[in-house]
Amino acid sequence: MVTRKFGRTLLYLGLIVGGFFYIYPFLWMVSASFKTLPEFARGGLSLIPQTIHWQNYLIAWREAEFSRYFLNTVALATIPTITSLISTSMAGYALATRRFPGRKIYIGGAVVMMFLPHGLTVIPVFMLIHKLGLLHTLLGVMLPSMGGTLMQALFFLGYYSSISTGAKTLEEAARVDGAGFFQTYWRIMMPLGRPMFATLGILAFISGWNNFYWPLVISLGDPKLRTLPVGLYAFRGEHITEWTLLCAGTTMALIPIILLFLFFQRYIIEGLAGAIKM
């Protein structure tokens, strides 16, 4: 009994110490973002700044153009999330509830394409955006992810298939009431698919917020289009010693994701776990 208690205490201790070191970089970052540059340069292991130096955030927001990066990131994370949910849920619903000619070929083609090797696809996407005349616009940054991923559509397909019997009964009833296919979708399928919308929506938002490669490539010729990760990367290259401003910027970039996770933990974890069980 005593050894068991001792073992358990040891495990708790290990988890607490390990957990502290695990999030230490974030604590350090937040702490550094409130320090003055001289205090930061002096070093020291204390996580509590001598004085709370709010100005880092103001300077970063106004003068280092983080406000622009922030808004670009918000746009890239929200708009494609909404449009992609609409397009992939419609596709998933149609594939799950209708036995139309070409359905099998469509699904088969999608799966095959997911497994084909891709070369450097970012170049053709760039060329396409260029030809559409969207190279220096925010729409050009967002457009490639606005339709959603095949993975998203397959998730919706799986979800709607699993509830298709019940859904069809509801749909029949709606049709008797004179609702068309679109009306049925907005009134029945959207509410029915709510858990999937929440999970896939949050995951899409996070991947949009963290997206790096495409924003990096498309903003090479136009710094106005930088998002937070790209902008902060560029900022470090241009202002190599403004450490505290950089920390204020990274804190601003990470906090929305932390908040999102704290509010929607269940959806995120279940969504990710669902991907493994599929």
């Binding site: 957990g19 695990y22 963290n210 902060l232 990367y233 470090r236 990470l254 974890i269």
Partner: peptide, 16 residues
Amino acid sequence: IFFLPSLMSRAIIGLV
């Protein structure tokens, strides 16, 4: 706590 770094932008984590 252990999941947090996985949610973050790798570029930003690299900077910090």
